[in-house]
Structure formats: C-alpha cells, structure tokens
C-alpha cells in the first residue's frame, strides 16, 4: 500500500442524549491514501459527515468520540487528532486539514469582503509574511480556481453566484496549504455544467498540487468521475472499500450493487434500473446483525444475528458481508 495520510482506527461516535444515545458511526476503520481522492459514498444518515468531522475534532454536539482514534501522519510525525488541545488544535485545523462544507455558500461571512475574510484567516494563523506576498498568494489561488481575482477581492458573498462562491471556498481551503482537503457534497446545489467544471478543477488540484482529497457524496455518478478509492457507507459502517474501477466492476456487496443499479444513467434503459427495496435505516433503532439485512436480497440466517466484520477479499479490497465469509482472510 502507498503512503497513508490519515488512519481511522476503530472509531465509534455516539450522540449522547438524556433519553437514549445514537450510534452514528460504529467501529469505523479505514486508511486514507496520501495524494489520492477517496470518496465516502452513502445516503443521508450513513454517518459520512460525522466520521470525518472527527478528523477536525469538530463533531457536532452532542456527538462524542466514544471509542477509537484518528491519526494524521505529518511526515514521520504521527498526530493523534483526538488528543489535540486548544492551541495545538487551532494550529492543526485549516493548516493541515481544511474542509469545504456542505452548502458552503452560507459559510462565508455576508458582511465582509472576500479579501478581508481570507486576510483574517491567514492573520490568525500567522501566515502573513508581507502584504505583497499575501496578495501574490491570493492571486495564485484565484487563478487556480479560474476566478477573476480583481473582481472577487472586493466582492461580498451576495454578489457572486453559487458556483463562484463554491470556488472561493475551494481557494479558501487551499489558503494555508494543507495536506488534506475534505469536501462535503461540494456540488449538491449547483447545476451540472458548473459541477463538472468544479470537479475538473478539484482533480487538477489533486494531480498538480498533490493534495489529498476526501469527498463525501451520495452521488455515485460523481464518484465514478473523480474518485481513486471508494468507501461505501451504510448506517455508520463501511460496507465495502476498493479502488473505483474494482468497485464498479465487481460491486460485491449487495448494498454497493443496489446503489449502482439504482442510479439513473443516461445510458441505461429503464429495465436496467432497480430501486433498493425497503426504507433507509433508522439509526435510533438499527436492526440486529448486519444493518442492511432487512433490505438485502441475499439475507441468510447469520445476517440477522451477527454483524459481519470488515474483511479483506482482494488487493486493497475490503468488504463487510457474510456472503464472503469463508474464502478470505481476516483484516
């Protein structure tokens, strides 16, 4: 395996409330390869946003990391993200790992110009050597996302379109030159042509600058376009992990298969498309055993009783399913 940048080690995240607690992420273990685009695919409630927020120690309240660790490899230095405190954490965020949030249109401050917002962030991270250097960096970043720097510098967020704001946020995420950028549904509210354009820029950022990207999405079409590695998530766990070509070709896990077959495509005839029967899981009341078993066509007795472990079934191909229990080695 190539270099690893981030390692999720047995992460469990609970939302602890007075009456009950919800397990949003369960025993999540995954290594993120350096310099690659890794996509977390899952429907709403699958825990993809929750698990990556552990990487910034930004799990929304009342969520808590109740088990496991998240490690970030900074050269030879192994950082335990969950143990970072105050000043260390503040320095770590954005300069090592940055994030483009979902609906990032609304994450910009409506009362400040774009230039001032960039300046403020750089200032508090002690990243301004001189104003000339800073302006140079900004011009470079806006050039990278193909925005007219002169116009955008002075603009307030409401003066820009959704696609432009999204590109401003991508430039923002690159500001402190982090190793990893997390993109949470970066194009959901955007039109298809803008979406394609933004993903072309993101692939360029990945290829030319060597940035590692984590992409969170529910859209399997986008994943087919950009991702190197794919983790399919369901009810807070990884169901299958493989490189994009293998995953789409073999689609071993019944949920992966269902997801790919349920996705409309301009090339597929209506007969080729099959919805996944049943309803998405209620994480307040998860079924016993494998969380997918009530909707699974291949459900066996063992599936209703035991949760399948994540196991290796091929070269960097992991799966959590009892169907593949015997012919494989354990992870």
């Amino acid at each position: 395996m190539n270099d690893i940048l981030v390692s999720f080690d047995n992460v469990t995240i609970d939302y602890v409330m007075k009456k009950q607690s919800l397990r949003a992420v369960r025993d999540f273990s995954l290594d993120i390869e350096k310099g690659k685009i890794t996509a977390f695919v899952g429907e709403s409630g699958s825990g993809k946003t929750t698990v990556v927020s552990a990487l910034l120690q930004a799990i929304s309240s009342p969520g808590k990391l109740t088990q496991g660790n998240v490690y970030f490899f900074d050269g030879d230095n192994k950082i335990d993200v969950s143990a970072l405190k105050n000043e260390q954490l503040r320095k770590f965020r954005w300069s090592k790992v940055s994030m483009v949030f979902q609906a990032s249109q609304s994450t910009l401050n409506p009362l400040m110009t774009i230039y001032d917002q960039f300046y403020e962030t750089a200032y508090y991270h002690d990243a301004i050597a001189s104003k000339e250097k800073f302006d140079e960096r900004l011009n470079y970043l806006f050039d990278l996302v193909k925005l007219d720097a002169k116009r955008v510098f002075k603009a307030y967020p409401h003066q820009m379109s959704g696609g432009m704001k999204q590109r401003v946020m991508i430039a923002f995420a690159l500001l402190l030159n982090p190793d990893l950028i997390i993109l949470d549904e970066p194009t959901t509210a955007l039109d298809v042509i803008t979406q394609k354009y933004i993903f072309n820029q993101l692939t360029d950022i990945n290829k030319n600058l060597g940035k590692t990207l984590i992409l969170l999405t529910h859209d399997i079409g986008i994943v087919a376009k950009v991702a190197d590695n794919i983790a399919v998530m369901y009810a807070g766990s990884v169901m299958e992990y493989a490189d994009a070509y293998t995953l789409f070709k073999e689609k071993k896990h019944p949920y992966t298969r269902g997801l790919i077959e349920a996705t409309p495509s301009i090339l597929k005839s209506p007969e080729e498309i099959q919805p996944i029967e049943g309803n998405p899981p209620d994480i307040r009341n998860l079924p016993s055993g494998c969380p997918f078993h009530p909707r699974c066509k291949y459900c066996m007795d063992i599936c209703t009783e035991q949760r399948p472990p994540l196991q290796k079934i091929g070269d960097e191909h992991y799966i959590s399913c009892h169907l593949y229990a015997n012919n494989t080695q354990k992870l």
Binding site: V192, G221, A224, A244
Partner: peptide
C-alpha cells in the same frame, strides 16, 4: 449539458470528451 451529466461507470465517465 448532456456531456456534463456524470455516468455511473468510471471507464465510460473518464473517457468522455471535455465540455
């Protein structure tokens, strides 16, 4: 518009011409 619609198959999707 049609070129921009992602196709859920990496082999086809990555060989499409640019918009």
């Amino acid at each position: 518009l049609i070129l921009s619609v992602p196709i859920p198959d990496p082999v086809i999707e990555r060989s499409k011409p640019e918009v």
